[in-house]
Nucleic acid binder design. Structure first.
Lengths: 361, 361
DNA sequence: GTGAAAGCGCTAACAA
DNA sequence: TTGTTAGCGCTTTCAC
């Protein structure tokens, strides 16, 4: 039983509610959690008592007693990239609506990743976990299993877990085909370095698929046209700078991600190379900002991937679903202004380029 | 004591560790948590036993017994805006390094906000909470206090809590002065609507400061030059479209945020109005993408605000700091290519605008 | 449909 | 420095 002040502070215990409703604590527990075997009248009395005392069950106590945490964990490799936070957003909404809490864990870099798999900080803290685009290594998989909770992966394959993602290979193929249909025979690819050590599935997939798609389409290839630089805008810019030193230039560029494409666009503008007249550029993802810079891209449903992953996980927690389900979502070509047939370029004096593009920012 | 299989599954209890190390459970608890009053030898024996059994203390049990959760909660109004996720990133890093977990809560909209303050879902689940740019209403403040844990606010004022933010008024003043120094006499402002009902402090502050700064600088004003549309790129575009119907145009535009400025840039390009020749444009925040579109802006340290908020909160938890501390971080002008003296515009035929800007994306 | 009682696995006084 | 002893506040059999 709690003191008056505890009760006033909203720290009433289940005993307080029980005595107020003239039932046992067990009944309070059942009533409040919507368990069966409680008469409507009792349920109502308990609810009223709980309301009056502003009773909230101690999460720690019920977790200890029940073994359930009503919390799910989400693990992301980065927090400063649009894609991941968007997935988290989708997950958060679904998880929250189901009455679960969300524990966010950011790997950040290789050290962080090791620490994570080493100490498994989510241990006994969550009922399930969602991992976003981390290629789970064999050893890590063992650790994950030892968590003893269902795992769902977004954007990557893994054994013994549910999976949701897109067909990256197909997306890349769509991009290459679009460019080929426009008449491009020489297509370059801008990739983000994997050197952060955070093994992930998606980047490699896109890269490999590119080679296959180009071969399928019977296009020219050259090692000079595949550039690898650190991931992101700066990397895209750097890769494009390197590209511009090639013996022969491609007429189109596919970037592994929209952010990389943004960097490419910037470099091309600084260089005075008209997009898409002199160079077509495509991104991948359909980033929030892709519309702003008018980037043609392959869109994937990002929020939905988070929502589905969360739904899958939640269902697995209630034994209502295949915990190893695999969901593949469609990608789609979004045409904007950065692609056109090769050579659709009208000469124009440099100094008429908009000032906003001339500066060095 | 646990069964052999429990132990094998990493579910050893503190008793298992105790008997293996030939000490009492209490000593195990002390040793593992680094409490004082444990001899080095004992500490080592316990550590070894724990390691061998892969023992991890049950969070639920220690929370119940100690009353501490080693978890902090972060509440954001939106998850699809760069600023908020960047703050979360800063918070996550600091909190994680201190051995705490992070519970993420997204308000999303007015309904979500009400639900949050109504049910206080963080109740008894966290040792402290960080709220990002939510203007806490009087009633809500009471609820927050009933949480019984320290609260730190980022980007907004609140009573009885720690605060970290920037001087929005000063930032806006810097922007207006920069434009005035360039010779602009007519400056417009693009604002995001507050109609989402999620009362927040920052937007209003920037708006009010604009009027004051313009007055201070003795510039022209017109109600036509202050546009309010839904927040974001689309809103910025819409606001600019409305602006272009004004009797007389300003020569410069200050957007409440970079995202709004992005929308403005797009509309201006579609309209064929040269930036900065015909119209200077400034943003606020220094969004990741501001460099890409070459936007002059007022930068604020975003990650740092998260880091500082987390540090403050953590210190408050250890009674090592003023829980009502107020930290104000500096803003700074970042010159890029979207501002110039008014009228620094060279006429040019429409059809030479880069194709990427001509399309409708 | 409801109650009694035995934990869940720790931490924290207090003793030794 | 270490051990003993009570809880922490629920949930969950198992009776009734």
């Amino acid at each position: 039983m709690s003191s008056r002040s505890d009760i006033a502070a909203g720290r009433a215990s289940i005993f307080d509610v029980a005595s107020r409703a003239r039932v046992s604590p067990a009944t309070v527990s059942r009533a409040l959690r919507g368990a069966p075997n409680v008469s409507a009248a009792t349920r109502e009395r308990v609810a009223a008592a709980a309301r009056e005392l502003a009773y909230v069950a101690s999460p720690a106590a019920s977790r200890l007693a029940s073994g359930r945490t009503t919390t799910i964990g989400i693990v992301v490799p980065f927090m400063d990239r649009w894609f991941f936070m968007r997935v988290v957003q989708g997950v958060e909404a679904v998880v929250r609506a189901a009455g679960y809490d969300l524990l966010l864990y950011n790997l950040g870099d290789m050290t962080g990743r090791e620490r994570f798999f080493d100490r498994m900080p989510l241990q006994r803290k969550v009922d399930g976990v969602i991992m976003v685009d981390v290629a789970i290594q064999p050893g890590e998989q063992v650790q994950l299993q030892e968590l003893g909770v269902p795992v769902t992966v977004v954007g990557g394959a893994a054994l013994g877990v549910g999976t949701v993602g897109i067909d990256d290979a197909e997306g890349v193929r769509m991009a290459v085909r679009h460019l080929a249909h426009l008449g491009h025979r020489r297509i370059g690819m801008l990739c983000g370095q994997l050197a952060d050590g955070l093994a992930r599935d998606v980047p490699g997939q896109r890269r490999d698929s590119f080679h296959r798609a180009v071969a399928e389409a019977g296009l020219e290839t050259s090692p000079e046209w595949v550039l690898i630089e650190p991931w992101g805008v700066a990397g895209g810019a750097a890769a494009t700078e390197r590209l511009l030193c090639a013996r022969r230039l491609p007429t189109a560029l596919l970037a592994e991600s929209d952010e990389i494409a943004f960097g490419a666009l910037r470099t091309l503008r600084l260089a005075g190379l008209d997009v898409p007249g002199r160079m077509s550029v495509m991104g991948f993802d359909d980033h929030d900002m892709a519309g702003i810079v008018n980037l043609t891209t392959i869109a994937q449903p990002v929020l939905e991937q988070g929502e589905i992953a969360a739904t899958l996980l939640l269902e697995a927690l209630q034994d209502r679903a295949d915990p190893f389900a695999r969901v593949t979502l469609p990608t789609r070509l979004v045409i904007r202004g950065s692609t056109a047939p090769p050579g659709s370029w009208a000469a124009r004096p440099d100094d008429t380029a908009p000032a906003v593009d001339r500066a060095t920012g």
